[in-house]
């Protein structure tokens, strides 16, 4: 029933490409939580996430012409814009400077995963993932997909052989795909 009231994605994209502010406002309201969640997941800092959210939504507004619906869903495109920008920031000098004073250990991701407080579990929901996706699978996805680490770095952080990183990441995605179909 909820999808019936939801605007068709085609219509939304048409509006965005025509630079309609109402369309963009709809987009913002629909996706702000998901996009902000991704940025925060990457940078793990609210102030930085606030700046990046503005920058990323401006980027979406300016670059919407380059979105091609044949290549995938709108959210997937936006997510990649947000993720790439946030990971770039994570690797930038700017961030590393602030990090020296406020250091955090990457290996905590193996167990921490996410304990953020203001989580809104609407879609499949974090709980389902926490229940069904093994911690070692989540750790790999978090480190690779949200932190942009290489296989070698992940092997080092998790203290597992490189081959295990490969097999685990494949198994993790297989499991994720299966969960989406169920």
């Amino acid at each position: 029933m909820r999808t019936a009231v939801k605007m068709e994605e085609d219509e939304l994209v048409k509006g965005l490409k025509a630079k309609s502010i109402s369309a963009f406002e709809y987009l913002y309201d629909q996706y702000k939580n998901a996009i902000y969640g991704v940025i925060y997941k990457v940078v793990n800092d609210e102030e930085i996430a606030n700046d990046l959210l503005q920058e990323i939504f401006m980027k979406i507004w300016k670059n919407i012409q380059s979105y091609d619906s044949k290549k995938g869903r709108l959210y997937t495109w936006m997510l990649n814009v947000a993720r790439n920008r946030s990971i770039d920031f994570l690797r930038s000098k700017e961030f590393n400077k602030s990090r020296q004073t406020n250091s955090m250990d990457d290996s905590v991701y193996a167990v921490e995963s996410s304990n953020s407080t203001t989580m809104q579990v609407d879609h499949i929901g974090l709980e389902k993932f926490l229940d069904e996706l093994k911690p070692e699978y989540r750790a790999i996805i978090d480190l690779a997909y949200f932190k942009g680490h290489t296989q070698e770095e992940i092997a080092e952080i998790l203290e597992i052989p490189l081959g295990t990183v490969k097999t685990r990441s494949r198994a993790a995605i297989q499991k994720l795909r299966k969960m989406m179909k169920d």
């Binding site: 406002e25 902000y36 959210l53 869903r73 997937t76 499949i124 996805i141 995605i173 795909r177």
Partner: peptide, 24 residues
């Protein structure tokens, strides 16, 4: 990609309200 996108929604977090005005 879509399954990773769906997974990413599990981390939804509400941004501060003032950001909307600034962006617009």
């Amino acid at each position: 990609q879509d399954s990773l996108a769906e997974y990413s929604k599990a981390f939804e977090k509400e941004p501060p309200a003032h950001l909307k005005d600034e962006i617009f």
